[in-house]
Amino acid sequence: MSGELPERDADKALAGEYALGLLSAEAAADFEARLVNEPDLRALYAEWCEDLAALTDRIDPVAPPPRLQGEVEAALFGKPRGRAGWIGALLGGLAVAALVLGLIFGADLLPRGPQAPADPAYVAEVAAEDGSLVVAAAYDAEAGALFVDRRAGAAREGRALELWLIAGENAPVSLGVLPGEAQAALDIPAELRAQLDGGVLAISDEPSGGSPTGAPTGDVLAVGPITNT
């Protein structure tokens, strides 16, 4: 085949075939061996990469699902990192101690009121860095309810504590204002349930009755990742 073409042209075509991935494994290995010692061939190959990459100019960008970045970073760096925006810094500074696994709510400690799920699908400990606010959460997948247990701290006078779900890089979504009682069960809307997996819970300081805007308006007091049991 190459006999039909002048050598330079043959290499040009060969570099193009290599860039397209058309060569057999053997021919590709030969080409790679030549690349090491032949700058001209490297130049031809690089030109093809540039030219062919332009074929992707008309492909519309598509945002990958937000959780993917966390998964990539977990694979590379060993733990999730880098939630978007206002939560990022806080989450980064969270002590490992806050990542309490397998939080158990003993039913015998809860004689009345909402009952902690015996077999929660997800748990989280939403905690302030200094421990001034600690809320344990456990999700009952069957009931679609999040059981919350405020173990330390409370809303300031005339203010409310609002619980937020942050899924990936999405904006925080309110899960509701924490009631005055330490323990409560919050109904999770059906469309949010799937987002609990891998999400983060946060609690912000809001006016009585909750954020008027649908987004956190006050200080973020506590955060905690949701753990799959």
Binding site: A28, E32, R42, Y45, C49, E50
Partner: peptide, 15 residues
């Protein structure tokens, strides 16, 4: 083939 093909190697001045 997947394993035979490396990432792009060194080349000329970038364009």
């Amino acid at each position: 083939q997947a394993e035979a093909r490396p990432d792009p190697g060194p080349g000329p001045e970038a364009q």
